[in-house]
Amino acid sequence: MRRRAGELVRLEAEILEAGLALRRDGEDRFHGFRLAKVIAESDGVRTLTAHGTLYKALARLEAAGLLASTWEDPEDAAAEGRPRRRLYQVTGAAERAVATWRAGRGAGAPTPLRPGWDPS
């Protein structure tokens, strides 16, 4: 199925659902690799084909206002001897989008990200 402008696709819904699950477990902010791990461990969801796919979807979701992101403190990354991570968190709009996606999934109806949003 081809994406229509302003609609939530399955991968984006999976990302948001994983982010909401992390938040329920006490992780308000998460990085992409952590998110990919949660998605891969979830039952009934597809496996990511490439991390580039994930990061493009994260950027679309942030542009749509469903995720917010910040860079972690450089000192935290340096203390662990690794590059800084971009940390994401789901927004209230994400909760509504996932609920709408779940409700429309049975009927095969796509879910609008937000009115008038165009991912292209």
Rank of each mutant, 00 (worst) to 15 (best):
E12I: 02
E12M: 06
A13I: 01
E14V: 03
E14M: 03
I15C: 01
I15S: 02
L16Q: 00
G19F: 08
G19K: 03
G19N: 04
L20P: 04
A21W: 01
L22T: 03
R23F: 02
R23A: 09
R23C: 00
R23P: 01
R24V: 11
R24W: 03
R24T: 10
D25G: 12
E27K: 15
E27M: 14
D28A: 13
R29H: 12
R29C: 06
F30Y: 12
F30R: 10
F30D: 03
F30C: 07
G32V: 10
G32Y: 05
G32R: 06
G32L: 07
F33M: 12
R34M: 11
R34S: 11
R34N: 08
L35F: 01
L35D: 03
A36P: 10
V38D: 01
V38H: 00
I39N: 08
I39H: 08
I39W: 06
A40V: 06
A40M: 08
E41D: 13
S42A: 15
S42P: 07
D43G: 09
D43W: 03
D43Q: 07
D43H: 06
D43L: 08
G44N: 11
V45F: 07
V45M: 09
V45H: 12
V45C: 12
V45E: 05
R46C: 00
R46I: 00
R46L: 03
T47F: 10
T49M: 09
A50S: 14
A50Q: 04
G52P: 11
G52A: 14
L54I: 12
Y55C: 09
K56W: 01
A57C: 06
L58M: 08
L58K: 03
L58N: 01
L58D: 03
A59T: 11
A59E: 07
R60D: 07
E62D: 07
E62W: 04
A64S: 05
G65I: 05
L67I: 09
L67N: 10
A68W: 12
A68C: 13
S69V: 12
T70N: 07
E72W: 05
P74G: 12
P74K: 13
P74V: 13
P74L: 13
E75N: 10
E75S: 14
A77W: 02
A77H: 14
A79M: 03
A79G: 10
E80C: 12
E80P: 14
G81N: 10
G81F: 01
P83G: 04
R85Y: 13
R85I: 12
R85C: 14
R85F: 14
Y88F: 15
V90E: 01
V90M: 02
T91N: 09
G92A: 06
A94M: 04
